[in-house]
Structures are given as structure tokens and as C-alpha cells.
Design a protein around this nucleic acid. Structure first.
Lengths: 316, 316
DNA sequence: CTTCCAACG
DNA sequence: CGTTTGAAG
């Protein structure tokens, strides 16, 4: 029996100061909670971008990724200004929550990115959805992973370039009470198999919200979140199995012991101010691309969503 | 056959510049509409309150009524400040759209009105709901009209005082496509019968959003709204039958020919700025109270809702 | 157009 | 907490 709980609700996370989502709204904030507020806040402070690879070549490719949590609200919060400043060659967006026909002209017209691709759910309006903005035209662009069950929720765009693939992905959340963990595990298997197919042709760069914190170091409160969507053993193992097939987590590759490096903070409980966060957004590279890796950055101070953007610098 | 329409949809109003609600959102605003915008805007300009009755007695009772269209949003828009300035003895609120337990403390605590009464729907959260705030304690307060079918939507509060009743009412809207006109007609019959019962004991003051514009003069565009909820022949006749039972429309009693006097303007199409409105809010009095009537005011410049408040001054 | 809801995260 | 619908007005 667990030592902390009295009510034994399997697979439902407790609504504590874990940085996870509570399953129900509580009436009074902070009522009945131990008053141990004044922990020192450790923010992830960022060093300058490294723009050369290990063998001294200058970066030639910049990719950014951001879970925008509603592209229309995000545009109102000046998200596009950040994109223009960051100026990546390829910009991947997740959770746009917007049918293509309802996209604001601000982004439809954006001349800096003449090649734009949108994947939205067939049904559920205002749910999920990913986008890829490219300065250069890909050789080919595909949507989904070729499996009926997974391809109706607007989660994957694959762009093929001369020497590599870029996959923008928004991996399904296991949901409150882990009601969708089962589905998520099917997804993980099928998505790995999809990536293996691509990787057999050319090396790939997978970027996006993979909805998993891999190790204890990848979230603030590993101990209390083992049953929370995004940190279950099943999801963590799924990510481990992906890496084992010949990929690397570019951020952790470069910063193996860096703590407090997160890309997501729940809007609740003032989590971001306290850096009670999770690292859910990744650039995962085929091992063949390791020599070209310059830097993998978390732009943790950039606001506009409950996720922050991340940026990859490569020689390619 | 009608001369204006091509598509013949019975009981669905056209989404024109009528001040009514269109049944669907249009994509482009103003697209495909005749460009005759620059009509002179006639705003209802208000004279000072008359504080004496016809026989020269000074007003002793002030009642206000306001459809607040969501009491929480209305409080944020400083609706309570207006209440404090107007300072009526009795304040009636309609469409509070809030369960009693979710009411902001601002209004729960309000010391100017020690006696507060709330009627909210049994089911549908955030729908309908009325309130009455009183400086003086009523002899008795009841909720609903004693008929099962009507009393689950939080539409009526009746307060009994020494020499009169005050009824705060929010009459059911007939809804888009008039799908609830049938129900509305049952309501009208039952509500009249309820009022007759009260009136047989003491004279009454009925106040609130009665969801009907009685005559052509009571809305900007009578000709195009004959099938719009609030101006159907059925609803107009229902109001006529009420008055015929021995009551008077206090505003029209005092200002029989005053045009452009409205209490509601749809948020759409900039209707309020153009005074494209409807008079839907009333003080209806038992004829016995006619000698005490001092004034019946429309506070048309007061914002905070798509309705404005109205105020009655009486000698009683 | 604006309020409130539920669903989702 | 915050974004999206959808219903309602």
C-alpha cells in the first residue's frame, strides 16, 4: 500500500505542487496545504548559442519548435514576433487548435516563410493540430504516419529535404486518469515504426511536444508524478525504446547533467514563476546527424504559451 | 409570397441590421449588404427624473431593474458602482447566469442591501437566474410561480411588502427559430394567472426583462422583426392580454409617443452605437398604483450589459 | 458580439 | 489557469 495516500485512486495524480494538472478544480487555493512556500527558485539560465559543431564547422540549419497552445491566442500574444527574431529556417508549431480556414491572416501571409503546411484534426475542431513553416521548399511533405487510427488528429507533418527528414510531432497526451495511456502506447509503437521507415532512407530530425519527460532530471517533481500523464513508466520506456533504435535526445546529449531545464509549466499554481516544470519538447536526431549537432537550446524565458520554444542548431 | 426573401424559412429572422440576433455568424462583416450606413443616430436622451406624483406627493419608493447578462462579468464592468450611485430601495437583476455559491463576494457582502434573494436554475449552470436586493426586509419572499414546468429555470422572485408585491422576472426567450415560442405561450398564460392571484390580494409591481417589445414604437425595426423572438404577434398579444387584465406599462403610460426608447441592443453589428434597439424591460403596475407613479426611467447611457437599467419612482 | 459551459491540457 | 468549442441570447 502507498504510504502517502488514504484514498486509493489508481492512475489519478494528486493535485499538489508538482507542476502537473489536478484532476479537479479546488475551491480555495492553498487551503489545507502545508505552508512551505519560500523555496529558492532555480530558473534555467541560458548560455549563448553554440554555433559550431564539434569539428569546428559553422551551423547551417536552424530549426525551432513551440507548442503554442492555441495559435490564435498565441498570435495575439505576439508569438510571431519571436519567430521573426529567432528566424529559424524551419518553424514547427504544435497544438495550434485551429482549422486552416480560421487561421489569422498574420500567419497565412507571413512572407518570411513562403512554404507553410498545416495538419488539423478531421473532426474535433479546436483540438490538437500542428504546422510547419519553411523558408526553403521541401522536396516532399506528408501528413500523419500512414495509420488510420493515428492520422485523424493532426499530429504529424513530415518534410523531406535533400539529406534529411524533419518531423513535426505532437504526441498524444495520456489524459487525466491516464484514460488514454493505452492508446498512447499503441501510438508509441506505431510512431517508432514510422520513424524507422524514414530513417532507413535518410537521417531524421524529430521535433515537437513528445509529451514525455524521460528521466527524473527532466521534471521538477519526479517522485510525485509517477502516475501523471507524461511521466508514467510506460511513456518513459517508450521514449527509451525510441532512442535505443538509434537516435539521440539532442539537449541531453549536450547537457547530460543540466538540471531545471524545462519546456513546459502548467498555468496553474504559479508553476512557471517557481520553475516547477517538465521537459516535454525535444529535438531527437538520427545518430548519423551527431557530428553536425551544434546546439540544442531551451528558450525558457520566452512566453506566449504554457510551453516555451526550443531551437536546434546544426551543420548539415 | 414575401417580396424581400428568396429563401422561405418560416420563423427564422433574417440577419440584417434589425438589432436582432442572426441565426448564424456571417464570414465577412458587411459583405453583400446595401451600403446605406449614414443614417442619423437618434439616441434616447433622458430628462431629469420626475420625483412627484400627479397629485404632488414626493416619491417614497425607488426600484431599479437590470438584465446584467452574466453577473460576474457585469461586476467586473463595475455594475455594482452604478447600483450604489442609483441607490434604489429594491434592485432587481436578471440573467445573472451564476449559481449562488459562485457569486463574487463583492455582491454577497454588499452592506447597502442587507436582504438579498437569489433564484437560479436547478440544472443548467450559467443560464438564466434572477436576484433581488432589498434595503428593507420583505414580509415574505417566494420563488417561481408555483408551476413545476416553469420553476426550474430561476426566473421569478416575488417579495411581499405591506401594501404591494414586487415581482422580479426574466421571461423566457422564444429562441432562435422560435423553437421555444410554444413554451413561451404556455408561460405567458401561467404567468398572467400567477399575477392575477397576487393582484387579488395587493397591488403589484412587475419588473424585469419581459422579453417582448409591445408595439412598433418599442423597437427600431418593427417591419423586419415580425418573426423575431420578442416581437412575434403571439408574444405581443400575450403582453397586451396582461395589460388588459388591469395593469399598465409605466413607461408608455407616461411617455405614450416617445420613440427610440430602448433597453436592449444586440452586441452585434454595433447596434447600440446606432441605437438599433428594443424596449424589453418594463415596470408593469397594477392600475391601483397609477396615482403613485412619479416616473419610469430608461438609463440608456449606462453600460455593462447588452441591456441598460431602468428605474421606477413611486409614492407608496 | 458576448456571456457562460465543457473538454482538454 | 488558459484555450478552445458550443449553446444561448
Amino acid at each position: 500500500m502507498p504510504k502517502r495516500g488514504k484514498k486509493e485512486e489508481v492512475c489519478v495524480a494528486e493535485p499538489q505542487e508538482d507542476g502537473n494538472e489536478p484532476e479537479v478544480k479546488k475551491g480555495k487555493k492553498g487551503a489545507g496545504k502545508a505552508a512551505k512556500e519560500p523555496e529558492p527558485v532555480v530558473l534555467y539560465e541560458d548560455a549563448p548559442d553554440n554555433v559550431t559543431s564539434a569539428d569546428g564547422k559553422k551551423s547551417t540549419l536552424k530549426i525551432s519548435s513551440w507548442n503554442v497552445d492555441g495559435i490564435r491566442a498565441w498570435i495575439k500574444k505576439q508569438g510571431l514576433n519571436w519567430v521573426r527574431e529567432e528566424d529559424p529556417h524551419i518553424m514547427c508549431l504544435q497544438e495550434i487548435k485551429c482549422a486552416e480556414k480560421l487561421l489569422p491572416p498574420d500567419i497565412k501571409d507571413m512572407p518570411e516563410y513562403p512554404h507553410k503546411y498545416w495538419a488539423c484534426p478531421d473532426e474535433k475542431e479546436g483540438y490538437s493540430g500542428v504546422a510547419m513553416l519553411c523558408k526553403d521548399k521541401p522536396l516532399n511533405v506528408t501528413y500523419g504516419i500512414g495509420i488510420e487510427e493515428h492520422d485523424k488528429e493532426g499530429r504529424v507533418i513530415t518534410a523531406e529535404f535533400d539529406s534529411f527528414f524533419v518531423i513535426a510531432a505532437y504526441v498524444p497526451n495520456s489524459s487525466r486518469g491516464l484514460v488514454r495511456l493505452d492508446y498512447r502506447q499503441r501510438w508509441d509503437v506505431d510512431f517508432r515504426s514510422y520513424l524507422k521507415g524514414l530513417d532507413s532512407k535518410k537521417p531524421l530530425i524529430l521535433c515537437g511536444d513528445l509529451n514525455v519527460a524521460h528521466q527524473d532530471i527532466d521534471l521538477k517533481n519526479p517522485k510525485t508524478n509517477k502516475k501523471t500523464p507524461g511521466f508514467t513508466p510506460q511513456e518513459r520506456q517508450g521514449f527509451g525504446e525510441l532512442l535505443a533504435e538509434g537516435y539521440l535526445d539532442s539537449f541531453r546529449e549536450l547537457y547530460p547533467d543540466k538540471p531545471s531545464a524545462y519546456t513546459f509549466w502548467t498555468y496553474m499554481m504559479n508553476a512557471r514563476a517557481k520553475n516547477v516544470g517538465w521537459r516535454l519538447d525535444y529535438f531527437v536526431l538520427s545518430e548519423a546527424l551527431r557530428p553536425g549537432l551544434c546546439d540544442s537550446k531551451i528558450r525558457s524565458k520566452v512566453t506566449g504559451s504554457d510551453h516555451c520554444p526550443i531551437t536546434l542548431l546544426m551543420v548539415i
